[in-house]
């Protein structure tokens, strides 16, 4: 277990006002470390995506603070937060969000291009990442031509192509069959996680719990448990 990657302090987030006010996250505090594969689990609507968004600089909390590698991100200007997301954090969204009008390799190159890497160079590097996820031969296809598992791998390649320290996956296996989901997580665990990285996975897929280092449970906006994984395999 290495240094602290993310530290959340008493995060609160609500939506709407008055009658319609929903408190999505109620005073959440936790730490995620480098070298750790952290799961956030809990039923649908328990506030997992909201919490992920706050710790990754996507959604501003109503109260509380988030330290990413020691920096209080919600004190930063919005362009600086965007830069932090670009350089430090890799996302795999709930439903991939690949660009249908771009080829697979161009999709993977997006973070590199946003980092102002030259186009050809970015495509070259993206190809290497496609190779890592085993999809080099699909580079010139449009994402819609790929299966769900393959699309998920493209999304992973895109998330890691920018060399982020922190990787965030929102329900990566939700729309995959059990076998594919297991393979994806196995891949994340063995190929992507390392001592310099922190990987956070939101899931309520109990079939993949065994890969977690720690599991944080949420219910109704509260963190109701944080434990070292007892099912831990590796």
């Amino acid at each position: 277990m290495g240094n602290v990657a993310i530290k959340a302090n008493a995060l609160i987030k609500w939506f709407g006002e008055g009658e319609t006010k929903t408190i999505a996250v109620k005073s959440a505090s936790f730490e995620a470390n480098f070298g750790e594969l952290l799961y956030i689990v809990g039923p649908s609507g328990s506030g997992k995506t909201t919490l992920l968004s706050m710790i990754s600089g996507i959604l501003k909390p109503n109260e509380g603070s988030v330290l990413v590698e020691g920096k209080d991100i919600w004190q930063m200007k919005s362009d600086d937060i965007a830069d932090l997301r670009l350089h430090k954090i890799g996302f795999v969204f709930q439903d991939y969000h690949l660009f249908p009008r771009l080829t697979t390799v161009e999709n993977v190159a997006i973070p590199l291009i946003l980092k102002k890497m030259d186009w050809n160079e970015a495509i070259k590097v993206a190809l290497e990442y496609l190779e890592i996820v085993g999809l080099k031969d699909r580079a010139q296809l449009q994402p819609v031509k790929l299966s769900g598992g393959e699309q998920q791998r493209v999304a992973i390649a895109r998330a890691i192509a920018g060399h982020p320290d922190i990787l965030i996956f929102d329900e990566p296996t939700a729309s995959l069959d059990g076998d594919t989901g297991r393979k994806i997580v196995e891949f994340i665990k063995t190929k992507i996680l390392n001592a310099e990285r922190c990987v956070i996975i939101v899931t309520h897929d109990s079939r993949i719990y065994e890969y977690a280092d720690s599991i944080m449970k949420m219910e109704d906006g509260n963190i109701i448990g944080f434990e070292r994984n007892t099912l831990h395999v590796a």
Binding site: A82, D83, F99
Partner: peptide, 16 residues
Amino acid sequence: MERFGALKAIGAKGHE
């Protein structure tokens, strides 16, 4: 919109 939103989430700035 979804594409622009994804770009924004990944780290594209408003002026970009």
